[in-house]
Design a binder for these strands. Structure first.
Length: 900
RNA sequence: GGACCUAUAGCUCAGCUGGUUAGAGCGCUACGUUGACAUCGUAGAGGUCACUGGUUCGAAUCCAGUUAGGUCCACCA
């Protein structure tokens, strides 16, 4: 047996993490075994376990939410890998259309004062690719430093050639199934940047504004007016109706009549609509379907025409009448003044309201109508709803299923076109009559339109929504649309998806739809892309606010990794994050994980420093060995169960408790006198048990703290002269093999712990130092307890630092002794010097009172007829037993207090 | 406005399908360094389980309401 390798007294993550990660990767540990001939000596098991990373934006940097999610996925993946599954975790990034385009555009403007129009489409795209090559994927490197065991050889990007192909195939398939159509739609228009922006890029800014009351003359009788209230008076030029609430008596007789719109002299109808709030403003709403989403809806309901007033830069077009050609701000001012002059301006209220503002240009958003591409969602949603209802898909926590269903059951058609340059170009070409056609392969300008036979004149300039590629993620990363792709057959469907709540419908629901839509050849349940969708906690700051870049309250996980190590960050995150519960984080929360890692490190050091002698090969019959192995068995079972049920914090706290409280505080302490004592057989048993417990502990802990445990695994193997090539990362998960719960040993251990607790309490109370040997007399009325004490007097004496130990049934309290009571034991500690008996008396009385209260509680229960009649008989028995014990304890406490 | 979540020790949180002397970590108090670990050990103080009702023999736990905080979605003409 060789001496243990040199281990410092403190765990120093920084030095070991990098090399270990490289070792895992170069040994191919993260790749599933190919064709039964696995890397790192593994063979295929035939069972696969697949996880897809939610692809972060290429522009992204790791934040706490990523760190938490990365940790969760890695725990699952490492656990399954050790269980023998052929495990695949696919990493990658998302091209994130607008976010990326904005980042690069901004950078180019800052450096060269050039806009994307200045560069032109082709050059601009080249620049983005260039940027992506140099600065993208930073986030993937950060996932590595967390220890994530992704198969990096399969890294994907949503604009890779194969994924782009998949996007195009999916588009054409939907086109051919008649699920894609073109239609008018209000989009959020940024008049400064002259682009549509998505809902996500709008900020609602609270501003002071005015609510203008405008008086519209009735067509019948121009001396009468209908007053409408608006915050955007200039849009009146596009009004095609006025709405009032159907039950509003003030206007009831006007419904069906028309008003004449000033400036443009258009007669527009007055309609009744439930959406109008009679209390707000004048109770009458102007309807501008071309420039307001709510009005668009109202317009649809009442079949009102749509008028578009604005050019792309925000100037008014020919529908603006006298204001045509003027900017929107100017029109507002002039129009209000003109109305005032005509006597058509009523009250002007000052109000505070939310103005939708473009994130990027900070200018007010103008909703405008434009032509967009849509996907019909209804037919795609049906099977996705079925997946959840039939149980082929489950959410964790379950309640998120409701969010998923609610969205699917009210699903709107999906607008998939975006007026951007960065993204998958829409594969649609038009002939000279503007007849569109979708095509798998690019059509040349001048080529023949396959349907009309006329020449193609242009390709659609827009690109697809980012989610039009990410909804294919589980399919396309495995080789779809090539149905014969080996990975697709082997790893699809996947088992586990962990992601954030806010993308349940943006992403999760759509992936499910895609699975059903594009894998029709599979049995129904297997089309669903993942069986479990785990929604992880939202990470909040120490004050309970969401962590975000803009709020500046984020904790950088990389700083924490730098300071505490990846394992400490991982362990802390998981320990703190109860399933389904948001988590508040402050930097000092990571210390707990850090301390734990150090504890494990030192426990392992202790074990290895004491393995220099022979170890037993037969199972030990000694109670402390049986006790710790029993506890190990319980822990192993509950950790395994917790991991399989995604209760990661339960698993982590079980490990924490076992390692710290059972193994370090009791077993290691109990082993010390054996390892240095004269009883060789006992020492051999201790060495065997220490080795066994450490080995399994490292295995159980590996998913949580991979670096620490891998390092210690290597050290242990070196110490024992075992296979130096062995890697914990791909070692088998600790399982049953003869390790089971031993209730006898547990009961004996409980007696010992009671005894030691008594002695320690007396010492603390009377200021006798922990290690100063003292004579102890212990009374145990129960014979079995007395026998246990007799059997383990050596262990008891060693743990309690006893000078002499007398075990009796009813000994008198020795002179100059203090006493503590627990579990039916009456423990007298003989002290030298002065003892504060008055203080001791107070403590005993206090305890007696507490125990008395508990006793009263149980007695009350036992006298309660309802309880005796209705409660579980076993429970009643237990309660009687408890009453006996409490009564004994109370008696002992009172007797001793009285004797002082 | 809609949906959902939370309220337990000074702080951050556990407490599963109702029966515990209501727990953990941090912080606090006292004591302790001859070697696994001071990123440690031992002992201790500290809680009307937000409030009000209800169900029950029995409620931190189940139900209803109130209050306070949070998250997501929608968005005010």
């Amino acid at each position: 047996m060789s001496p243990p390798m040199e281990l410092s007294t403190r765990y120093t993550p920084k030095e070991i993490e990098g090399p270990l990660y490289e070792a895992w990767e170069s040994a191919g540990c993260f790749q599933p075994p190919a064709d039964g001939q696995g890397p790192a000596g593994r063979t295929g098991s035939g069972k696969t376990y697949t996880v897809m990373i939610p692809p972060p934006n290429v522009t992204g940097v790791l934040h706490m939410g990523h760190a938490l999610n990365g940790t969760i996925q890695d725990i699952v993946v490492r656990h399954r890998r050790m269980q023998g599954y052929e495990t695949l975790w696919v990493p990658g990034t998302d091209h994130a259309g607008i976010a990326t385009q904005a980042v690069v555009e901004k950078k180019i403007y800052a450096e060269e004062q050039k806009t994307r129009e200045d560069l032109g489409r082709e050059e601009f795209l080249r620049r983005i690719w260039d940027w992506k090559e140099h600065h993208g994927n930073m986030i993937l490197r950060q996932f590595r430093s967390l220890g994530c065991s992704c198969d990096w050889t399969r890294t994907k990007f949503t604009m890779d050639e194969d994924l782009s192909r998949a996007v195009r195939v999916s588009f054409v398939e939907l086109w051919e199934r008649g699920l894609i159509y073109r239609g008018a739609r209000l989009v959020n228009w940024d008049c400064v940047l002259e682009t549509a922006v998505s809902d996500d890029e709008i900020e609602y800014v609270q501003q002071k504004g005015k609510l203008w009351h405008l008086r519209y003359p009735l067509t019948d009788d121009p001396t009468q007016h209908l007053v409408v209230a608006t915050t955007r008076p200039e849009t009146m030029l596009g009004d095609t109706g006025v709405a009032v609430h159907p039950s509003d008596a003030r206007y009831a007789q006007l419904v069906g009549k028309t008003v004449r719109l000033p400036f443009v002299n258009r007669d527009i109808p007055i309609v009744a609509d439930d959406s109008v709030d009679p209390e707000y403003g004048s109770g009458a709403v102007k309807i501008t379907p071309g420039h307001d989403p709510a009005d668009y809806e109202r317009g649809q309901r009442h079949s009102l025409p749509i008028i578009s007033l604005l050019e792309k830069d925000g100037t008014f077009n020919e529908h603006g009448g006298p204001f045509a050609g003027k900017k929107r701000e100017v029109v507002r001012k002039e129009l209000v003044a003109a109305l005032d002059e005509m006597g058509l301006l009523g009250e002007v209220e000052s109000i505070v309201h939310n103005v939708s503002t473009s994130d990027r240009s900070k200018s007010p958003i103008e909703p405008i109508v434009s032509e967009q591409w849509f996907v019909k969602m209804q037919p795609l949603a049906e099977p996705a709803i079925g997946a959840l209802k039939k149980g082929d898909l489950e959410f964790r926590p379950e309640r998120w299923g409701k969010v998923y269903l609610h969205w699917l059951e009210n699903v709107q058609d999906w607008c998939i076109s975006r007026q951007l340059w960065w993204g998958h170009r829409i594969p649609v070409w038009y002939d000279e009559d503007d007849v569109p056609v979708a095509s798998l392969d690019d059509l040349e300008i001048g080529a023949t339109h396959p349907k009309t036979g006329k020449p193609i004149v242009r390709q659609d300039p827009d690109v697809l929504d980012t989610w039009a590629s990410s909804w294919l993620w589980p399919l396309a990363t495995l080789g779809w649309p090539d149905k014969a792709a080996a990975d697709l057959g082997r790893f699809y469907p996947t088992q586990f998806l962990s992601t954030a709540q806010e993308i349940i419908y943006l992403w999760v629901a759509r992936m499910v739809m895609a699975g059903y839509a594009f894998m029709p050849e599979l049995p129904e349940a297997e089309r669903n892309p993942f069986t479990t969708c785990y929604i992880h906690a939202t990470v909040l700051d120490g004050k309970g606010k969401r962590m975000s870049k803009s709020a500046g309250n984020g904790i950088d996980p990389l700083d924490m990794i730098e300071k505490f190590g990846a394992d400490a960050v991982r362990f802390s995150l998981v320990l703190l994050t109860k399933e389904g519960q948001d988590v508040r984080l402050a930097p000092d929360r990571f210390e707990q994980g850090s301390r734990f890692c150090n504890k494990v490190w030192n426990a392992a050091r202790f074990v290895m420093m004491n393995l220099a002698g022979e170890a037993s090969t037969e199972p030990s019959t000694r109670f402390e060995d049986r006790w710790i192995l029993s506890s190990l068995a319980r822990t192993r079972d509950s950790v395994t169960a917790a991991l399989e049920e995604y209760r990661f914090n339960d698993a982590a706290s079980e490990m924490y408790r076992f390692v710290w409280n059972d193994f370090c505080d009791w077993y290691v302490e109990l082993s010390k006198h054996r390892l240095t004592g004269d009883d060789d057989a006992s020492a051999m048993d201790a060495r065997a048990t220490l080795t066994r417990v450490l080995t399994d502990t490292l295995g159980l802990l590996h998913p949580f703290t991979p670096y620490l445990t891998e390092k210690l695994w290597a050290a242990l193997h070196e110490t024992l002269g075992r296979d130096p090539e062995s890697m914990l990362c791909v070692a088998p998960w600790p399982t049953g093999d003869a390790l089971s719960v031993d209730e006898g040993a547990e009961a004996e251990m409980a007696v010992l712990q009671d005894f030691v607790g008594c002695v320690r309490r007396v010492r603390a109370l009377t200021m006798v130092p922990e290690r100063k040997p003292v004579p102890v007399v212990v009374n145990a009325t129960r014979a079995d307890v007395r026998e246990t004490m007799e059997r383990h007097r050596g262990a008891a004496a060693s743990l309690a630092f006893v000078e002499s130990l007398e075990i009796a049934e009813a000994a008198e309290r020795p002179a100059q002794s203090a006493v503590a009571v627990a579990g039916g034991l009456e423990t007298f500690v003989v002290l030298g010097g002065d003892v504060d008996f008055a203080k001791l008396k107070t403590v005993l009385e206090g305890r007696a009172e507490k125990v008395g209260k508990a006793l009263m509680g149980t007695e009350k229960k036992l006298q309660n007829e309802g309880f005796l009649k209705k409660a579980d008989p076993e429970l009643i028995e237990a309660e009687k037993e408890r009453a006996k014990e409490l009564a004994l304890e109370k008696e002992l406490l009172e007797r001793n207090a009285a004797g002082l």
